[in-house]
Design a protein around this nucleic acid. Structure first.
Length: 816
RNA sequence: GCGCGAGUGGCGGAAUGGAAGACGCGUAUGGCUCAGAACCAUAUAGGUAAAACCUGUGGGGGUUCAAAUCCCCCCUCGCGCACCA
């Protein structure tokens, strides 16, 4: 038979009819398996790089179906978001029209590749049936004090009159118009993810089946550090400046303080400074530096002296207070005790402004001299009063204790993690369900008034304010409390809020009264296998974990983590670059499907290399996959015409060898799939089996029953990868039911047994010969045999072996 | 700067302490063919045409009977984070 696109279409219809991927979630007759591929952002049609993701998920689902699981494999659309809006503006169509058009196209693509989903569970985040519950989750967070509004700085382009995401700021300027970006303070909504920082960190230990890399990225992102907060009294004042440090052991080396330009104490501090004007100038300069300027490699440290001094509470030393551009307002207390001898940044700053450097830590007791350079490690304290001589570790403890006793400091923990800013001054998102009333203030929309519908007819060109501001029929409402006229919040939510809970919605996608049914969700989650790109390692995966934990605390779900197992697939690159339209290196799947059929593409993508690693696309590889499939299919043609029977006769050596190959292949392919999805090696082994079938046919006699078994096994093992062809062959071989209703093949150890085996003969670790031995020989017989070999005798000559190492079934090493 | 990952034929890769290069691509030779494509067969790390031998998994050292694999030092590339005190 010839394989072509026509084969594909036939089986797509069949699977749909069979309802192969439609799940009855109440069915408990089989164990459940929730296989989830990260849902796409429908911004353009998919290329082969995207395809890899879905093909992996489909192979896993089909394999698990054959292993007897009730497999849930749903699909949906992360449909809100800025790119849709930008594209809509560009093409002068409504974001919804644009998004829905893309969804149709992508759906068509997924279907054409034979990716199986339970389409009855399709969800689209921009539909009110979905975002009603996104808003509901927001309200729940609000009720618990985990959603709040505060003023915060954001990147602002004065020309485009809009807030920009950090990613849209290139070298301090707007990526579109190159206008210098300013920092503008806006009232924004935040979710208090920081309340969950510790649990998000701790519970990573529950995620045994997550890639280490992703967990490390999350650990770094959360960035927990333990240290001490210490108060520095200001000279001639009752005020104090509180600093956070992880290196309290270096306190005696603190020779100046540095404040962030936003620190509240500055106003009071500089009110009668002689250089007040210069200070203000400096603050303005720093203020207008975009956040992104800090990211530049050699961001220059700058500062200005306030004219005031603080007292180092331990050394009693009078130290100058500076304002410096490298101090972060958001981290710790926004004020730093600077120890130039033991901190690179402080060192750099002290050098520049000629500030005192006092060495207080020596690398070890025996070091007598230290050049004037920074030593950031831990060691032994010197020049540290009563604490001199202690190790850093002991000193940290003892100084912290002393500070607490003296009530001038305390142990403290800080995180890098910031609260999640979810306000977007954009149209295409879920409205934040809040109403502002002149008399009642900020009022949440009552749950029974949800959803707050996103109005359809809107002028959404960017003006600097949320487009919703101009929709009077949207903004004007009445206060739920006092029934007086009130205004709606006009910002929409970050799309990451939409995607932080979608995996729950798939269980009951059409439910109108609740976001999800706890009982069902508790049975189907956590997700058994989550599959997606590593680019979501932090944002999406951290947000989802946070929201899940929040729902857990409300008692709405009973699992602390939403995704039990995570698989992050590698990118497909072409000519060394990630595929992108601008690079012009996108490989579109359509022509591949037309020319070779979906299974060829699927097989090649899975065969390219380990799925977690990046892979380089090569058209020739596709050709190879096609060739293999045709070669395998030709066996089916041979089998149809095959009449050799010798049933009842004992098996000949070719038949025994082939049976052994069949069973070892089943074993190895199963191991590869149960492991870390080693599709590439699994496919290689199936190719070996095909090669051996040809060899057996060409070289020896093969009875039909064994030939049949071999061919049947090939296509059973291939079926998760190449479902169309496998289904076709299954049908030709006379099976009435779908190949996916059959069980995954089992192997029998009895076929794997060997009577004779070839082992390697090594002398001093180098292979010199090979010899066939019986598997039941003991070490002594093997040694005797080896030493009698002509080649071995020749090499050994008069030397007698010092030692003979026999590794069963593998080799013998003679040490001379 | 810190963290993670990787480095193996002409290419994608296999082998996680036991015969380096499975499987595939490419290439070569032969078969089939009027011819080509396709297909089939054989070969394919290097020194080398072959036997024998030697060398060989980024570089250097070590552990071991035995190292691509484990340990130490270094180099290169990719990714992530990046003034977090």
């Amino acid at each position: 038979m010839e394989y072509s696109k026509a084969t594909d279409l036939k089986w797509h219809a069949f699977w749909k009819n069979e309802r192969l991927f439609n799940v009855d979630i109440k069915d408990t007759s089989k164990p459940k398996y929730y296989c989830l591929v990260m849902f796409p952002y429908p911004s353009s049609e998919l290329h082969v790089g995207h395809a890899r993701n879905y093909i992996i998920g489909d192979a896993v689902s089909r394999y698990k179906i054959m292993r007897g699981y009730n497999v849930l494999s749903p699909m949906g659309w992360d449909a809100f978001g800025l790119p849709a809006e930008n594209q809509a503006i560009k093409h002068k169509i409504h974001p919804q029209t644009w998004t829905l058009k893309n969804i149709e196209r992508i759906k068509e693509q997924l279907n054409s590749w034979g990716i199986g989903y339970d389409w009855d569970r399709e969800i689209t985040t921009c539909f009110p049936q979905y975002y009603k519950w996104t808003q509901w989750i927001f309200l729940k967070l609000y009720q618990k004090g985990l959603a709040y509004r505060k003023e915060a700085f954001a990147n602002w382009c004065p020309s485009c009159k809009t807030v920009l995401a950090n990613e849209q700021v290139v070298d301090g300027a707007c990526e579109r118009c190159s206008t210098k970006v300013e920092q503008k303070k806006l009232k924004q909504w935040f979710l208090k993810i920081t309340s969950y920082a510790d649990r998000l960190l701790e519970d990573l230990s529950l995620l045994k089946d997550w890639p280490e890399k992703v967990k490390i990225m999350q650990i770094n992102w959360i960035g927990k550090s333990e240290g001490v907060e210490i108060d520095f009294p200001i000279e001639n004042s009752n005020e104090k400046i509180r600093c956070f440090t992880t290196r309290i052991d270096t306190i005696f080396g603190a020779t100046f303080l540095a404040l962030s330009w936003e620190h509240q104490v500055i106003k009071e501090l500089v009110k009668d400074s002689i250089n007040k004007n210069q200070i203000e100038e400096f603050i303005n300069k720093v203020k207008n530096q975009p956040l992104s300027a800090r990211l530049v490699e050699n961001f220059e440290k700058e500062g200005i002296f306030t004219g005031k001094f603080a007292i180092n509470p331990l050394s009693g030393k009078k130290i100058p207070i500076w304002i410096a551009n490298y101090i972060l307002t958001e981290y710790g207390t926004g004020a730093i005790m600077c120890v130039p001898a033991h901190d690179k940044r402080d060192f750099e700053f002290a050098k520049k402004y000629n500030l005192e450097i006092i060495e207080v830590i020596k690398p070890s007791q025996h070091t007598t001299t230290l050049p004037i350079a920074v030593f950031e490690g831990e060691g032994i304290l010197v020049n540290s009063g009563n604490f001199s001589g202690l190790t850093s570790r002991d000193a940290k403890e003892k100084i912290a204790f002393y500070l607490e006793e003296a009530n001038i400091g305390r142990r403290a923990v800080n995180y890098k993690l910031r609260d999640w800013l979810i306000s977007r001054q954009r149209y295409w998102g879920a409205p934040i369900p809040i109403i502002y009333c002149d008399s009642c203030g900020e009022v949440p929309v009552p749950e029974n008034n949800l959803p707050v519908l996103l109005p359809y007819n809107i002028e959404f060109l960017p003006t600097g304010q949320s487009p919703l501001t101009f929709a009077k029929e949207f903004t004007q409402t009445t206060c739920p409390n006092c029934k007086r006229p009130a205004q709606r919040e006009t910002d929409t939510m970050d799309t990451f809020v939409d995607s932080s809970w979608y995996y729950l919605r798939y269980i009951s996608p059409k439910e109108e009264n609740v976001a999800f049914i706890t009982e069902d969700v508790n049975r189907w989650l956590p997700v058994d296998q989550y599959i997606g790109g590593v680019e979501h390692a932090i944002l999406h995966l951290l947000y989802s974990r946070f929201i899940n934990k929040f729902l857990y605390d409300l008692g709405l779900v009973n699992f602390p983590e939403p995704f039990a197992k995570l698989f992050t697939q590698g990118m497909i690159v072409k000519d060394g670059f990630k595929m992108s339209k601008s690079k012009g290196n996108v490989v579109a799947p359509d022509y591949i499907i037309d020319k070779y059929g979906a299974d060829t593409m699927r097989l090649y993508i899975l065969f390219m290399g380990p799925p977690q690693k990046d892979a380089e696309w090569q058209d020739e590889g596709l050709q190879g996959a096609y060739r293999f499939l045709q070669r395998a299919l030709r066996l089916v043609d041979v089998l149809k015409e095959y009449n050799n029977t010798e049933e009842g006769q004992p098996l000949n050596s070719f038949e025994r060898a082939l049976l052994k190959k069949i069973h070892s292949t089943i074993k190895e392919v199963t191991v590869d799939l149960e492991g870390d999805f080693q599709f590439n090696t699994a496919i290689a082994r199936i190719m070996e089996l095909v090669n051996q079938i040809y060899k057996s046919l060409n070289e020896g006699f093969l009875r039909k029953s064994i030939f049949y078994q071999a061919v049947d096994t090939v296509f059973l093992l291939l079926s998760p990868f190449t479902p169309h062809i496998s289904e076709e062959v299954n049908n030709i071989l006379g099976n009435k039911c779908s190949i996916f209703r059959r069980s995954w093949p089992l192997y029998y150890e009895e076929y794997l047994k060997e009577e004779e085996i070839e082992i390697a003969v090594l002398i001093n670790g180098k292979v010199k010969d090979k010899v066939t031995i019986s598997t039941d020989w003991d070490k002594r017989s093997v040694e005797e045999k080896i030493l009698s070999l002509e080649k071995v005798k020749k090499i050994l000559g008069n030397n007698t072996p010092k030692k003979i190492i026999y590794v069963e079934k593998r080799l013998v090493n003679i040490v001379v």
